[in-house]
Structure formats: C-alpha cells, structure tokens
Simulated scan of single mutants.
Amino acid sequence: MELRAIVMGLAFAMMWSSAFASARIIVSAAPPLGSLALRFLVSGLLAVALARLMGQSWRLSRAQWRATIVFGLCQNALYLGLNFVAMQWVEASLASIIASVMPLLVALASWLLFKERLRPLGYAGLLAGIVGVTLIMGARLQGGADPLGVGLCVLGVISLAVATMSVRGAITGGNVMMIVGLQMLVGSALLWPVAIAFETPQVDWSWRLVAAFSYTVLVPGVAATFLWVVLVERIGAIRAATFHFLNPFFGVAVAAVLLGEPMGVYDVIGVAIITAGILAVQLSRLSSRK
C-alpha cells in the first residue's frame, strides 16, 4: 500500500474517532436529537452541493435510493441518534469502543447469514473481539457505567451493522457523494419530528459548543466522508476497511486528551485485543479475495 493511501487512511480513522468526543461536548449543552438533526441538515446540504460541483446527479437507481433510505434510517437516525442520546450518560471513549466493533458484527453476520467463509485468522479475530468487548464492558459496568446508555450504544452499533449488510453493493454505479448527502438529509428528516416532540429546545451557548458543532459538521460529517470515498476508490473497499482497526485506539485517546476521561488498565488491554481482532478479520477477508 502506497504512503499516500496510508496517510489518508490514518487521517480518516482519526477524524471518525474524534466525532465521539465532539458529540459528548454537544450533548452536554444542547438537546441530542435536535443537535443531530441540525448537523445532518447542514452536512447533507454541504455534501449535496459538493456532489453537484463534482458533476454528480440526484437521479439515482432504485438500488441507490434503497441504500440512501436504509442508511438514512439505520446509520443516521438510529445508530447516531441512539449514540447521541446515550452520551448524555456514558463517556465518549466507551461509546467509541462499542461502535468500533461494527466490522466484527458485519463479519459475524456474513458468516452466519451468508455463509461467507473466513480463514482461521478471521475466526480468531472474531473471538478476540468478543473477549475484548466483554473485558471492557465488565470493567465499565462494575465501575458505574450507566446500563441504559450502554444498551443504547449496543443497539446503535447493531443498527449500523444492519445498514451495512442491507446495502451491500448498492452504492455502485457512481453518485456516491450525492448518496452520502441525501442519506444525511433523510436522517435529518426522520429525527426532526422526534426531537420536536420529546426534547426541550434549551441550549447552553458557549464557544466550546459552537466549535464542537462546527467541527462535527465539517470534519467527521463532510471531510471524513469525502476522504473515505477517495480512499475506497484508490485502494478498494476491503483494503480501506483495514483502517477501522485503529478506531478503538483513536477513540479512547482523543476522549482522554480532549475530555480528560480516565483510561483504565482493562480499557487498554481490551482496546488492544479488539484492535487486533478487527485487524485479523480484515486481513483474513483481504487474503481471501486475492
């Protein structure tokens, strides 16, 4: 893999992982679902405008519209919606760790539902992921982590895995950035009624909130997505997915630096095990495609 692709992959992993820390800042000062709906509205409009500048069309195929709607529901409204609500009670580091096991869930579902065979290294990676998550979750729950918040994060990552499995191959045929923008707008449209019905529009304004929201819109929302698309086009989806093994480490590290969240010994051990598990699964799938 060329050096430029490695740098792009590292930048994407850092951007993606940092979103949990900025989200934690946002939900501490503003309603979570309303904030997320506004973020998707702004990010979606920016992505659609960027797609138009790239010459992409919003005339999508039936499969692409299905991908847009499914991702808008499962990835944005459910996965991120549940995580934003959960981070009122759980730390950003824990939320990022739970979310980072998505590649393991997809690999497990591919094996169980689609009979996609893995090499022995892949099965070892799945087992390592389960061990790492169990270790961290057990330590965090004993340390007082909110069970409801943890449960919402778990439901969220399952929703993300379902979305990933449901639209396999559906975004082929171009217009990827347009699909990204439209699925954000779908998520925004789904979240606004819930936010209006159940949340009080009370915001504790500060420069920290404005900075966190702006960062979330521009960096994880638009820049990371664009970088991911370019990376996939450059080296392929399977190779690009190997960079997800960095997400547990980056997520915990960013939360510790920006938010001062504690990092226990079980967190370090568990993150190392999960990271190794994700890497093993991705490398196994990569070698099986050669």
Rank of each mutant, 00 (worst) to 15 (best):
I278G: 01
L152R: 00
I130V: 15
I98Q: 03
G260F: 05
S43A: 15
S206Q: 10
Q183L: 12
L246N: 02
M137N: 06
G151D: 03
P147T: 09
G221W: 00
L286F: 07
A124C: 13
V101M: 11
A13D: 08
H244S: 13
E2D: 15
V257Y: 02
V167D: 05
V257W: 10
V257G: 07
G221S: 07
G181V: 10
W89H: 08
A49P: 08
C74D: 04
L279W: 15
L50Q: 08
S22A: 14
V27I: 02
M1F: 09
A241S: 15
V133H: 04
G129A: 01
C153S: 14
L152P: 09
M165V: 01
A163T: 08
S166G: 14
L3M: 12
N83Y: 02
S288Q: 10
V268E: 03
I238F: 04
R119C: 01
L135W: 05
V106R: 07
D204E: 12
L41H: 10
G132A: 07
T134D: 05
M165Q: 14
A86W: 01
E2P: 14
L53W: 12
A30F: 04
G251S: 08
S96E: 01
L155R: 01
V42G: 13
V194P: 02
I171W: 13
V257S: 02
L283C: 01
V90F: 02
R239C: 00
F245C: 15
G181A: 08
G144I: 04
V217N: 09
A276R: 02
L190E: 11
C74F: 15
Y123F: 15
A256Y: 01
L113Y: 14
I26T: 13
A30K: 07
S110H: 04
A256M: 07
T164A: 13
